[in-house]
Amino acid sequence: MTTATLLFLPPDDSQPWRWWRIRDDALDGEGEGLPQVGADDRVVAVAPADAVTLHWASLPARSPAQAQAAARIVVSDATAEPSHDLHVAVGREREGERAIAVVAPARMAAWLTALAQRGVDPAAMVPAPLLLPEPEDGYVRGDLAGQAVVRGRTTGWADEPVLTELVTRGEVPRAIDRDTVRTAAIGALAEPMVDLRQGAFARRRRRTAIDWMLVRRLAVLVGLILLATLAIDVVRIMRYSFGADAIEQRAATIARQALPRGTGEGDATRMLGERLSALRGPGQGFTRTAAAVYAVVEAVPESEVTALQFEPNGSLRVSLSLAGEAQANIVKSRLAAAGFSVESSVFQQSAGRLTGDMTVRP
């Protein structure tokens, strides 16, 4: 058993809401106000005829967006208001033509808001003239829930004496009885010629069930992304590891070239360090210690080094010839300031010069 409800939107706030209940393709009831709508009932709202302008045009078969763009061009030639400020709905193609319905966006928004406040989300919204039967020629007139409506093959409007006479050029529309109107409305309800709920006013579809196929596809995509990320990290780590091994191998090769022949196998870097320590000597080594001593002595006037002796414990014994005791004290204090421990022997005066030894240690 199929149930549907035609809910007629009032032309203005002074008029009541009206409804028709359709059950198994037959009128099952009607009334004023808002009906009780079941969870499985299909509600189709009917827009007042005086609020919607209808056009018919030949639009080639194309996507809905392209058809709507072409319909706006047609509408712009027939209205003084810019087409982008209007809500344009395009119907299905029939015999090479499509019905085009034009309504003010503010009016559409007000209708949907009023319906939502009453807990109704209509499955479709159709202009009232399209519920009347399409005449083979001329015009027909019928009453839809208290509103008189006129329809021709390519026109439809709210019946007003002056307007109707202008549109029909004096031809009197043929009146159709109540049962014919209701039969035609029930037939139009199954597949509306134009649904105003398009574009910005389209009904939002609610997902009632989980699409497990989509969930599995998303899970596979997430897994592939994580696997690709892990693979990138593994490749980067391997590159770094291979690079470090290559650097160590090169360092070992260079270190072995600095070792004397016949050194034998072993850690070339460690053996090179041992050889360097042996050449340099204990402590800070002979070179650094002697360089510090010569730098200090050269800076003291009338002072000179007469002999050097580097001991195995890293100390350097320096024999000096100086002009006097003051120069000896300056040399000793400057070596101490340079970070060395200095021990002096007894200096002796000979031939106008002061001679003696200093032992310098790190």
Rank of each mutant, 00 (worst) to 15 (best):
R203Q: 07
R203T: 00
R203F: 00
R203C: 00
R203D: 03
R203E: 10
R204Y: 04
R205A: 13
R205V: 11
R206W: 12
R206S: 13
R207A: 07
R207Y: 01
T208I: 01
T208N: 13
A209H: 14
I210Y: 08
I210V: 15
D211M: 06
D211F: 00
D211E: 01
W212K: 01
W212P: 05
M213D: 15
M213V: 13
L214V: 12
L214K: 13
L214Y: 07
V215N: 10
V215C: 04
V215A: 14
R216Y: 08
R216L: 03
R217L: 09
R217E: 11
R217H: 06
R217W: 10
R217C: 04
L218G: 12
L218K: 14
L218D: 07
L218I: 03
L218V: 04
A219L: 10
V220M: 06
V220W: 13
L221N: 14
L221C: 12
G223P: 06
G223Y: 01
G223M: 05
G223A: 15
L224R: 10
L224K: 11
I225W: 06
L226R: 02
L226Q: 06
L227N: 12
A228N: 09
A228Y: 12
A228D: 15
T229Y: 08
T229D: 14
L230W: 13
L230Q: 15
L230G: 11
A231D: 11
A231I: 00
I232N: 09
I232W: 03
I232H: 15
I232R: 15
I232C: 04
I232Q: 11
D233M: 13
D233C: 10
D233I: 00
V234S: 07
V234D: 08
V234F: 02
V235C: 04
R236A: 15
R236D: 07
M238Y: 06
M238C: 03
R239N: 11
S241T: 08
S241D: 14
S241W: 13
F242S: 07
F242Y: 09
F242D: 05
G243T: 01
G243C: 03
G243K: 00
A244V: 04
A246V: 02
A246C: 05
A246K: 08
A246S: 12
E248P: 07
E248F: 08
E248W: 04
Q249C: 00
Q249Y: 04
Q249H: 05
R250H: 15
R250P: 06
R250D: 08
A251T: 06
A251H: 00
A251G: 06
A251L: 06
A251V: 04
A251E: 03
A252Q: 06
I254M: 01
I254L: 15
I254N: 05
A255D: 08
A255E: 11
A255H: 10
A255I: 01
Q257Y: 05
A258R: 12
A258M: 02
A258Q: 05
L259Y: 01
L259A: 09
L259N: 09
L259D: 05
P260K: 10
R261P: 05
R261S: 08
G262R: 08
G262C: 02
G262W: 04
T263C: 10
T263K: 02
G264I: 14
E265H: 01
E265F: 01
E265Y: 09
E265P: 09
E265Q: 13
G266M: 02
D267N: 14
